[in-house]
Amino acid sequence: MQHTTSQSAILLLADGTIFHGKSIGISGKTFGEVCFNTGTTGYQEIFTDPSYYGQIMVTTNAHIGNYGVNEEEVESNSIKIAGLVCKKFSTFHSRPYSESNLFDYFKKQNLICISDVDTRALVSYIRDHGAQNAVICTDGTPVDELKALLAQTPDMVGLELASKVSTNQPYFYGNENATYKIAALDLGIKENILRNLAKRDCYVKVFPYNSSFEELKAFNPDGYFLSNGPGDPDPLDGAINVAKEIIANNYPLFGICLGHQIIALANGVSTYKMFNGHRGINHPVKNLISGKGEITSQNHGFAVNKEALDNHPDLEITHIHLNDGTVAGMRMKSKNCFSVQYHPEASPGPHDSSYLFDQFLDNIKSAKN
């Protein structure tokens, strides 16, 4: 059962293009960079992924809400997307494990959503014209007024967003009697990363994004982790300096997504804003070390400069994205450090890349011996 009101709503793009639809019943307007995710399942995990902070999500799957929500299927403590654009929004859910419907979940957190949009046309437009800022309006605000407000929305390039989603205080995750201790820098960490580390006999201390290397080191960890997160990596000078010091001391280091970009910047390799980015759960990646292919979960709008990586004497590309040849993973030749641009913890997505957590543990074990 599709749930919409008779209230018309619009999605206005920064270039002036308007897509029409209907409000699901939550009045207001919301601003952010419009992007699309091609995953067919896992919408709740996507909506709560901190890496999506500040972004208006377009779901390419036609049905959203059809299997309800479950409080255990979250990647953070709240919805992180700025708004949702979908084709069909359903309050009827037929899954035994769902605890409530998506509309009530959105209403509780005041998430603005527009449905009945021609999402195929919208995604095609974004593919051709690139990601850009947009506003969803469900309260009837005049278009000229929306255009003026939209013009004031900051561009994603140069935008530091890790501070908006990082923890304010350090916290622990896992069994305190675990064999290994991990210091994780929270740039917008997903819950499933912590689950993957904990089930590998790791006790994790999660630190705020602006923590110093000395603060992380005081935990006396066996390994260090730099998390995923939203926004441009370039303004994160503190995190880049932390990465530099971990690398200089040759401590085991693993980075995912934004953490991967931070490691590149710490080595003097630049990053750039992608035309569209990669967001979905079926992206093909080739492991250049093993020669094997992986189907991966991805969510990023920035990437590492491949030419600069190729010319770096101490960095080696380990994984490549097979759709467009962009860098999907790298490692340092002389240091105990590696990273990937995609999400081995998935959630949602395939588990092809979960071996990377085992690789991190192997690196830690080698360093301890």
Rank of each mutant, 00 (worst) to 15 (best):
L197A: 05
F106P: 11
E215L: 00
G280K: 07
H129N: 15
A131Y: 09
G54D: 08
G229Q: 09
F92C: 09
K292C: 00
S339M: 01
R279V: 01
N192V: 01
N110E: 15
V165Q: 02
I295W: 00
P350C: 09
R127Y: 14
L265E: 11
R331T: 09
M57Q: 10
I320L: 12
R279E: 04
M274F: 04
A184P: 02
A198K: 00
N276V: 03
F103E: 07
D222N: 13
A266V: 12
A131K: 11
F172R: 12
C202W: 06
V340Y: 09
N249Q: 15
D15C: 10
R200K: 12
R95Q: 15
G231F: 02
T326M: 10
H321G: 05
I364A: 07
V143K: 09
Q152N: 13
L253F: 12
Q109M: 10
L111D: 08
A346W: 08
F338W: 02
V58P: 08
Y180D: 04
Y251G: 01
T41Y: 03
K181M: 00
T17R: 14
F36W: 13
K88N: 15
E176G: 07
L11N: 03
G39D: 10
A346F: 04
V285S: 05
T119M: 09
M57T: 06
H3R: 12
P230T: 13
G140H: 04
C35L: 13
R95A: 15
L122V: 14
I18F: 04
N168K: 14
G130T: 09
N61W: 06
F36D: 07
A178I: 04
